[in-house]
Design a protein around this nucleic acid. Structure first.
Lengths: 341, 341
DNA sequence: CGGCGCCATGTAAACGGTTACATTCGCGTC
DNA sequence: GACGCGAATGTAACCGTTTACATGGCGCCG
C-alpha cells in the first residue's frame, strides 16, 4: 500500500503551532487569531491535509453517516424517496447508506442490535417497515435517532403521505363522473412486511363510497401485488365478473398499466368501457393518458431527511411535532377517466 | 445523551483476560485456547458488547464501506445496478454509500480529493461517469480501489455491457424482418456527463446497416434524451419526415414508450406501420408488447461489486483481467416488431 | 534431564483526531 | 503600579480498537 497522507501533527509542526490550534483553526472554532488561522489554512492546503474521518468519528462519536432502510432500492417509489433524502442529507454534510430490507428476517436482522446501529450511524430513516411498537421502544432506548416514513410509531417523528386521502381523492373522482360500481386493484393483502399503504387507501375508498351511499362489493377488490403483471391479472378477473365494474381504482400506476393491457386484450377501451385511476404519476402515466393521484416521493424523502437532521441537532420532538402529514397528493385528471374531450 | 455501551475492556475484566485476547477471540483469530474463546464469547454476549466500528476503522484503516457513484439514484437502470451491487457487497459485510453525481461539477467535486476519498471508504464504483484518464491516474495514485462500470479506463478493472452488440442486435433484427429504412432514437448528443452508451449503440447500428449494404440517413437519427417525452417528440419528427422510416431502434424502452405514443397519435400501429425495438426490458415493455434488448443491470452491479471486493482483497488486476464484458444482452422479440402471429 | 520451540496470553504502543484544563500574555481599571 | 480578566495557545488525556513484541509455561527431543 501507499503511505498515508499528512497528519494533523505535520501541519502543526509546519505552521509552528500545536495540534489543538490546528484542529480549532481548521474547524472554524472561535478563539483563534485570524493571522494564525490564515497561516494554518495555508499550510493545510499546501500539504493537502484532510482530517481522517475515522479518527474524528472516534473522538467525537459522530459519524456523519445516515442509514436509510427501504423494502427495495429499485422500486419506483423508493428510489425516488432515496434520491430526495440523499440530496437533503448531502447538503448538510452527511453521507447516506442505502439498506434494502426485503423480508421480515432482514428487518429483524437489521434492527436486532440497536446498540451497534447507534455506533454505526448518526441516524436512521425507516421507510414502510412497520416495526412493532416494542422494537421502536428498544431503538429509542438505545438512543438511535430515528425517523419513520410511510408509517408511524409513538416514539419517533414520522413523515406520512395521507394515503386515506389518496384513496378518497381517486374514488370520489370516479364517483363524481357518475360511476357507481367501482373496482379496486389493491396490494398484497398479507404482505410479509405488512406495510400500511393498501389498508389506508382502501379506507379512503370506503369512506368515499360511504359518503355517496354506495355499497362496497367485496368481489370488486383484487390484489395486484403492486406490479404491472399483477394488475393485469386483477383486471382480467374484474372483467370476468358477471357484473363488472365501470371504473377501477388501481393503487399504483404500474398496476394500472397492467389494467390497461387487460382492458385492451378484452377489446375494450378506457374511459368509455372502464375508467381507471392510478396512483404515483409515474413518468409513463402520461404516455397512456392515465388519470392518477400524484405523489412526491422525492419531497417526502427530503422531508424525512430534514426531520432526522433536526433530531440529530437535538431539536426536541416536542417542538417539531411527532407526525408530519405531507400535503403533496394531487389528482391529475387525464383521458383514462375523463375522455379526450 | 445516553451512556455508551460496554467497551472491550469491560469484557476483558469480566472474562479475566486481557483486551488483546478478547479482540483475538472475538475476531476468530488463531492462537486462542478454545476454552478461553468460549468464555470470552459468553461474556461478550452477556454484556451485549459490540466492537465500535469507528475505533476499529481507526486502528485498521479499513472502513468496510464502499461508495457507488451514479448519475442518478432513481433511474431505471441505475437503481437496479445499485440493488445488485448492494446485495453483493452486503453479503461480504460491506455497507454501501449511494452517491448521485448529476453534473460535471459534482463529478469534479466528488473526485477532487482522492486522498480524502481513500480515507472515507475502502473502494469506489463509478458508473457511467466517463472520467478523463488523468483523473483516473490521480485516483490510482492515491491508492483508491476503483471499479468502473459502463466505461473503462486504463488503470481500473471495469464491467461493461457490450453496447455495440446491443445496437447490432436490435438493428439486425429489424433488417432481418425486411426493413431497410431504420430510424434511430438516441440519447443526448452532448450530454454533460458525456457517457458513452449512445455512441456505442450507434456504432452497432451502423455496423449492422453496413453489413447489409444499407445506407445511413442522418435525418433518421433523433435524440430522445432517454426520456419517454423525448422519445415521443423524436418519433413525431421521424414520422413527419417526407420519407419516414418503416422501423425504429430506440436506445431505451422509456423512449420507445414515447415512440409508441407518437405512433398511436398519428393513427398508426406497430409493427405494421412502424416497427420499434427498445433496450432494457423494462417491466412495462411487456405490457405494450415492445420488442427489446434485455439488459441486466442488477447482474452488472453485482459483477462490479465482486470485482471491487477482489481488488480490496488484494487480488491483482493481472489475474482478473482489466475489462470484463458481460454477456447479458439478449433480444426479446415481441409484437412491436414481429406482429402478433 | 536440559534446552528448544511453540502456543496462549499479556503489555503497551500505535491509529489520528478532539477537547477539558492549564498557561501565558496584553490591556484596562482602580 | 498591582490586579483581574479574557483571548490565544499549549499540554495531555481520551475515544476504543488492533497488533507488534514480550513473556511464561509446557511438551518433546536428543
Amino acid at each position: 500500500m501507499r503511505a498515508r497522507g499528512p497528519s494533523i501533527e505535520d501541519v502543526a509542526l509546519e505552521a509552528g503551532v500545536s495540534v489543538a490550534t490546528v484542529s480549532r483553526a481548521l474547524r472554524g472554532l472561535p478563539n483563534v487569531a485570524e493571522a494564525t488561522r490564515a497561516r494554518v489554512e495555508e499550510v493545510a492546503a499546501r500539504l493537502d491535509y484532510r482530517a481522517d474521518p475515522s479518527a474524528a468519528r472516534l473522538a467525537t462519536g459522530r459519524t456523519q453517516l445516515v442509514e436509510i432502510a427501504t423494502p427495495t432500492v429499485d422500486g419506483w417509489y423508493f428510489s425516488r424517496f432515496l434520491a430526495g433524502a440523499i440530496d437533503q442529507l448531502m447538503s448538510s454534510g452527511y453521507e447516506t447508506i442505502a439498506r434494502p430490507v426485503e423480508s421480515p428476517e432482514e428487518r429483524e436482522e437489521f434492527l436486532a442490535d440497536p446498540t451497534q446501529l447507534k455506533k454505526r450511524v448518526d441516524g436512521v430513516i425507516l421507510v414502510d417497515l412497520n416495526i412493532p411498537e416494542d422494537v421502536a421502544t428498544q431503538l429509542h432506548g438505545a438512543g438511535v435517532n430515528t425517523v419513520t416514513a410511510g408509517f408511524s410509531t409513538q416514539r419517533f417523528p414520522s413523515v406520512l403521505i395521507d394515503d386515506v386521502r389518496v384513496g378518497h381523492l381517486a374514488t370520489s373522482h370516479l364517483i363524481e363522473l357518475g360511476h357507481r360500481r367501482i373496482g379496486l386493484i389493491s396490494g398484497e393483502p398479507n404482505h410479509p412486511l405488512a406495510f400500511s399503504v393498501p389498508g389506508l387507501r382502501l379506507a379512503g375508498y370506503s369512506a368515499a363510497m360511504g359518503e355517496h351511499g354506495l355499497m362496497i362489493d367485496p368481489l370488486l377488490e383484487q390484489s395486484g401485488r403492486f406490479t404491472a403483471q399483477g394488475g393485469r391479472i386483477a383486471m382480467e378477473r374484474l372483467l370476468a365478473l358477471p357484473d363488472p365494474p365501470t371504473a377501477v381504482f388501481a393503487m399504483s400506476d404500474e398496476m394500472a398499466f397492467g389494467a390497461w393491457r387487460a382492458i385492451n386484450d378484452a377489446g375494450l377501451r378506457w374511459p368509455d368501457d372502464v375508467a381507471v385511476v392510478g396512483v404515483d404519476d409515474h413518468e409513463l402515466a402520461e404516455m397512456v393518458d392515465l388519470t392518477t393521484v400524484r405523489l412526491s416521493p422525492r419531497a417526502l424523502g427530503a422531508a424525512a431527511a430534514q426531520r432526522l437532521l433536526d433530531l440529530i441537532d437535538g431539536e426536541s420532538v416536542a417542538t417539531t411535532g411527532l407526525a408530519a402529514r405531507l400535503d403533496v397528493v394531487e389528482l391529475v385528471p387525464r383521458a383514462s377517466t375523463i375522455g379526450s374531450g
